[in-house]
Deep mutational scan, measured.
Amino acid sequence: DIEITTNGEEDAKRVIKELQKRNLEYHIEVHGNQWVIKVR
């Protein structure tokens, strides 16, 4: 598993777009303004 910590929603959406392009499965956890994306 890979864990990507982003700085808020805009940053997270940019990362998610890339993950979707590669058809990767991911899970999002929001901790305040930090979005942690866990990639399987």
Rank of each mutant, 00 (worst) to 15 (best):
D1T: 14
I2Q: 06
I2R: 08
I2M: 12
I2V: 09
E3Q: 11
E3R: 10
I4Y: 10
T5D: 03
T5I: 15
T5H: 14
T5V: 15
T6Q: 02
T6E: 02
T6L: 14
N7M: 13
N7W: 15
N7K: 09
N7P: 04
G8W: 06
G8V: 07
G8K: 09
G8C: 09
G8F: 08
E9A: 10
E10S: 07
E10L: 09
E10N: 07
E10F: 07
D11P: 04
D11E: 15
A12S: 04
A12H: 03
K13N: 11
K13Q: 13
K13T: 07
R14T: 07
R14D: 06
R14W: 14
R14E: 09
R14F: 11
R14V: 09
R14Q: 09
R14G: 05
V15N: 01
I16M: 08
I16A: 05
I16T: 04
I16G: 03
I16L: 07
E18F: 12
E18M: 12
L19K: 01
L19V: 03
Q20M: 10
Q20T: 10
Q20K: 11
R22H: 14
R22I: 07
L24A: 06
L24W: 09
L24P: 01
L24T: 04
E25T: 13
E25A: 12
E25R: 12
E25P: 11
H27S: 15
H27Q: 12
H27F: 13
I28A: 03
I28K: 01
E29N: 04
E29F: 09
E29K: 05
V30K: 10
V30R: 11
V30Y: 09
H31V: 14
G32R: 03
G32S: 04
G32D: 07
N33P: 07
N33A: 09
N33T: 12
Q34E: 09
Q34P: 01
W35G: 01
W35C: 03
W35Q: 02
W35D: 00
V36M: 04
V36R: 05
I37D: 00
I37Y: 00
I37M: 02
I37P: 00
K38A: 05
K38E: 02
V39C: 06
V39L: 06
V39I: 13
V39M: 04
R40I: 15
R40K: 15
R40D: 06
